[in-house]
Each structure stands twice: as structure tokens, then as C-alpha cells.
Amino acid sequence: MSDATSVLRRFNRSYTQRIGALDDSFLGLGLPLGTARVLFETGEGSGVQELRERLGLDSGYLSRVLRRLEDDGLVTVAADPEDRRRRRVTPTAAGRRTLRTLDDRSEDLAARLLEPLTERQRGRLTDALATADLLVRAATVSLDVVDPATPPGRLAMGSYFAELDRRFPGGFDPGPTDDVSSMTAPTGTFVLAVSDGAPVACGGVQRIAEGVGEIKRMWVDDAWRGAGLGARMLRRLEAETLDLGYDVVRLDTNRSLTEAVAMYERAGYREIERYNDNPYAEAFFEKNLGRVSTSSADSAHDSC
């Protein structure tokens, strides 16, 4: 781990220096990088709460940054006309001009960094940075227990249903989806992963028999495949299953979801006989959590 952290820290020092993150005036805009980034994230307008959650900022720090941007005449902060309890940040005309300048100068800086490299080197760098970005985001995303009936929970499950409809040979009909009470306390739970304000993975647990829980609606966004998020979600759901008092966990899946089947097998699940009447399920798995309390899953290729 010391070698890995050393490489990561060296890259952080090198990159922040070369993109001007250490300067008081990032890209000559008269704003430090943090303040310029907040302005960039406002786009055409953003809720303050959404902005704080998307950037992972302390509310006090964000308030100071927004006050600075207001004082500079770059944004206005006012009550959201659709919900007066919320505040909304909107760029002014000067703010939109600064945003265009920020975008142009950022593009120029990126081009200058790439210019000395050969086409092959640029391809290597692009691939490396894309992989690094995915892995860093996957390592830092939080998995939180939420009410599945909330809009983010519904959105995640809607994405799960849409993927099944794309991948199943005959499509997928989820049927009535309003009742999600089986995945709420005290007999169930629902775990959601959100990054940059959007759901990227989810999964639930429900009770199906005495001492037996079932993992349902486990999904990972396509863009996050290959970063271990599926395996991490599976481990978390197993831990939640134990916390609910179930020593055995079951799940079903369609064999067209080959990545999911492979992941479950690596995680120590054994195939069993059909235990429900799900018309889309073709493979049924079980794991005794009383004997094996941790998962060995190591793949994020996941959807069940």
C-alpha cells in the first residue's frame, strides 16, 4: 500500500502544480481554483444544496465561496421560485462571460499539456486518466441506506428496470413498482450509491423466510463497470442482511446477465433449486452468511 499511496501522492503534487491549482488566480481569472470550480458547477443555475452535495463541500465553506462570487458580481443567490425554502445560485451576465473564459482557458491548458506527446502517448494518457478517474470515484463514493420510495431510490430502480429491458431477449416488464415496503426497516433495507448528484448503484434486502433474506434490485451503472463497485455493493448488502438477523441470503438472476452470475459464484454463492415464481429468473443462488461473513467478490460487472 505504501508504494500505491506514494505514486498517488506524487501524481497529486505533479498535476496540481502543472494545472495551476496552487495559484491564487487560477488560469488568470482572479479566482482560486476552488472558487472557479464552484462557479463552473453552477452552469445555468443550481440549487445550493445540490451544489454542496455534488462537490462534497462543507456548508460553511460553500457559503463563503458563494459570498465571494456574489461580491464579485458573478452570481446571484436567491430563493428558488419553485420552492421558497431552497436557495438557488444563478450566474450573472458577467458570470457567464467568466464561465466561457474559464472553459476556453481550460481547453487551451489541456491542449498544451498534450501537445508535446505523440499520438500513441496521448492515447496511453487518455486511457490511464479515464481508468484513474473511474477508480478514484468508485473508491470515494458512499453507500447509504435510504428509503427506496424517495426520488433518488426510484430513479435508481428505474435505471435497473431499463437495463433489464435492454438486455433480456424478450424485454422486461417490472409490473407494479409502487410497493417497496419490503425493502424498509425492520425486515428489509435499501442501499444507494450516489456520485455527482446521480445514482450509480443500488440494491435491497427483503425477508422471504425465517432467518432468510433476499437481495433484490441490485444494479450498477454501465459507466461504473470494472471499478469494483458491484462487489462492494454486494458485500454491503450481505452485511445489512446479517444486521437484519438473517444468516442465509438468496438471490435470483437471468442467465443473460453473465457478469452477475460470475460475480456471485466468485463471492461464494452456490446454485440452488428455484425458490420463487419470478418468470424472468433462470438461476437461483444461496449463501450461508453464518459460515462466510465476508464476500470475496472482486468484480463490478453486476446487475441482478
Rank of each mutant, 00 (worst) to 15 (best):
M1W: 10
A4D: 01
L8Y: 11
R9E: 14
R9A: 04
R10Q: 07
F11G: 03
F11P: 01
F11E: 01
S14T: 08
T16G: 02
Q17E: 15
R18V: 07
I19N: 03
G20Y: 01
A21C: 05
L22V: 09
L22H: 10
G28H: 09
G28A: 03
G30W: 01
A36F: 04
R37D: 15
T42N: 05
S46A: 15
Q49L: 14
L55G: 03
L55I: 04
G56D: 03
G56W: 06
L57A: 09
G60D: 10
R64M: 04
L69A: 13
E70Q: 14
D71E: 14
T76K: 04
A78N: 00
A79C: 00
D80Q: 11
D80P: 08
P81W: 09
R87E: 10
T92G: 06
A93L: 11
A93C: 01
G95K: 10
T101Q: 15
D103P: 00
D103S: 08
S106I: 00
E107I: 08
L114H: 06
L114P: 08
E115N: 04
R120H: 07
G123A: 13
G123W: 07
R124N: 07
R124M: 11
L125C: 08
T126H: 06
A130N: 05
A132C: 01
L135H: 11
V136Y: 00
R137C: 04
A139I: 07
T140V: 09
S142W: 06
S142H: 09
D144C: 03
D144M: 02
D144L: 12
V145F: 07
V146S: 04
P148H: 10
A149K: 08
P152D: 14
P152Y: 09
P152H: 13
L155R: 13
M157V: 13
G158M: 03
G158N: 15
E163G: 05
G170N: 13
P174C: 14
V180R: 09
S181W: 04
S182Q: 05
M183D: 06
M183S: 09
A185V: 12
G188E: 13
F190K: 05
L192P: 02
V194Y: 14
A198W: 10
V200H: 13
C202M: 00
G203N: 11
Q206K: 14
R207V: 12
G211F: 14
V212R: 13
G213F: 01
E214L: 05
E214S: 12
I215H: 02
M218H: 08
D221K: 08
A223R: 13
L229S: 07
L229T: 12
A231G: 11
L234R: 06
L234G: 02
R235T: 15
R236Y: 01
L237W: 11
L242D: 05
L242W: 02
D243T: 00
G245P: 03
V248R: 10
V249R: 08
T253Q: 04
L257R: 05
A260F: 08
A260N: 05
A260E: 05
A260G: 15
R266N: 03
R266F: 02
R266Y: 01
A267C: 04
G268T: 02
Y269S: 03
Y269N: 04
E271A: 12
D277L: 09
N278L: 10
N278D: 09
P279C: 12
Y280Q: 08
F285D: 05
E286H: 04
N288L: 02
N288W: 07
G290V: 00
V292G: 01
S293A: 15
D298T: 11
S299G: 12
C304T: 06
C304Q: 08
